[in-house]
Amino acid sequence: MRTPHRARIRSVPLLALATVLTSAAWAGPPARRGPTPPDPAAAVPAVARLWPVGTRPAVVRGWDPPETPYGPGHRGVDLAARPGDPVRAVADGRVVFAGEVAGRGAVSVELSGTGSPPLRTTYEPVRASVHEGDAVSAGDVVGTLEAPAVHCLSTCLHWGLRRGAAYLDPLSLLPPWLLSRGPSRLLPLHAPAR
């Protein structure tokens, strides 16, 4: 007996679906292509002991990671500061670059004891007072902030953080007590009469 044309059309998609499900069940787990690389952001230790400028500078622009390696974004944070302000290493490390990049002064410090590949902080625009290979401790001056560039509307320090090729949020280096605005204060319930 012949199956009507309409019934054959309906049974073909069901047969195809059954074939796909059966082959997927027999395929087993997906093949691995080697070890999964660790997430670079997962292990950012709070090793910073101070802010790179001032005691609690305003964050003019926050970290905004790009969706793709060459996509738009902000690969660091901008901190309010004045030209001539000292720029300090936030943690112990070794200077791996001190010079100019695209006409702006920059300093890069590889942080000690931060894993492999190690974390690296960058500071710009900075007139370097250190040289490549110099050891620095937290709080050591690495340079002075240069006059405003096109990066900020007013003067700011661009502070960056990388692990290998991955850009990370430099604020993650700061322990919670450096990020807070200070201890809570109790105020009187009633204002004094005037």
Rank of each mutant, 00 (worst) to 15 (best):
P52H: 05
W63G: 01
D140V: 09
S23R: 08
P65R: 11
H5Q: 10
S184C: 09
A138P: 06
H5E: 09
A24M: 05
P13L: 09
G34P: 02
L15Y: 03
V77Y: 02
V107P: 02
A16S: 01
T22L: 15
P72N: 11
S154T: 10
V87N: 01
R56E: 06
A16Q: 00
W26I: 09
A147S: 14
L50T: 12
T122Q: 14
V20R: 06
D39R: 04
G164R: 12
P118W: 14
D39H: 07
L153R: 09
P29V: 05
R33V: 05
A46C: 01
G93C: 09
T122L: 15
A7L: 10
P4V: 00
A58C: 00
A46I: 01
S184W: 14
A46T: 12
V141L: 01
T36A: 13
W26S: 11
I9L: 13
R6S: 14
R33H: 12
S184L: 14
V107W: 03
V95A: 05
G139Y: 11
V47S: 04
W177D: 12
I9D: 00
P38K: 02
P4G: 10
P86N: 06
G115R: 13
V90W: 04
H131Q: 13
E110W: 03
G103V: 03
P38W: 02
P37S: 11
R162C: 11
T22V: 14
R33G: 11
A135G: 08
H74S: 03
E146M: 13
A91F: 06
P65D: 07
R75T: 07
W63T: 00
C152K: 05
P30W: 09
S154G: 13
R75Q: 13
G34I: 00
P117R: 07
A193K: 14
V47H: 04
S11W: 15
F97L: 07
A43W: 05
A193E: 15
W51P: 01
